[in-house]
Design a binder for these strands. Structure first.
Lengths: 119, 119
DNA sequence: CGGGATCCCAAACGATACTG
DNA sequence: CAGTATCGTTTGGGATCCCG
């Protein structure tokens, strides 16, 4: 059954899509977040490990991106009370549910790279 | 056959993933780009139409985001030489190949929204 | 109608020094 | 080791005005 929209008013379904995409956009906004999520999708990582994996990132900004991902419920932070300190970062259930997005995005990126190289 | 990596050196495969994800990150970086791509995925849109769909965006910034998407080969800009001017934006083939990412991201966002509401 | 040009501001990023 | 605190810089977004 066709759906009519007077004056091009957007249907509710579209609004929902826009809303959820905006939400996703907010969560992954940040220069390093997608890559951080991807590294954590492979295994748990320590702070220093992440810093080594992310070339050129400073401790301050890495801390902030991780804190924001934590606030958004994507990342779990496990502190081991010992000296020297040890902190491990991993994906929460919600963070893990984001992995399909990373995969789709990665596949797209690969094709995109090939095309760019053949230009 | 197992793969050995001395001192945790990342395998080539991982580097490729990181590289392609970084590429994707660069393309979608920008507050409105994901939403713009999504609106264009549904149909061709005129400039003013996009501005109405994106609440609060100014002409200047909308122009810039569209130009960047154009430079990245995601969006096609069709100018009709007439008065008053008419410009239509649509997805290129490469832009269309990004739709699966938008879909996956949208699905994730919907689940994420439900969870947040039940908290 | 679809911009371009300019200015301004806030946020994001980054470098450095210090700390338990 | 894993931060915090501070500061400086850069980038991006937004507002405004002008134009063909």
């Amino acid at each position: 059954m066709a759906r009519f929209n007077f004056q091009g008013e957007p249907p509710t379904e579209e609004k929902e899509d826009v809303c959820s995409l905006t939400l996703a956009q907010n969560v992954i906004a940040g220069r390093w977040k997608i890559i951080i999520l991807w590294y954590l999708s492979r295994r748990t990582r320590r702070f220093n490990e992440l810093q080594r994996l992310l070339p050129g990132i400073s401790k301050g900004i890495l801390t902030r991106q991780l804190r924001e991902l934590e606030e958004d419920g994507m990342v779990h932070r496990e502190v081991y009370k010992q000296v020297p300190p040890k902190v491990e970062y991993s994906l929460t259930q919600q963070g893990k549910s984001f992995i399909p997005v990373l995969n789709t995005m990665g596949e797209w990126g690969k094709k995109y790279m090939e095309i760019k190289q053949n230009e």
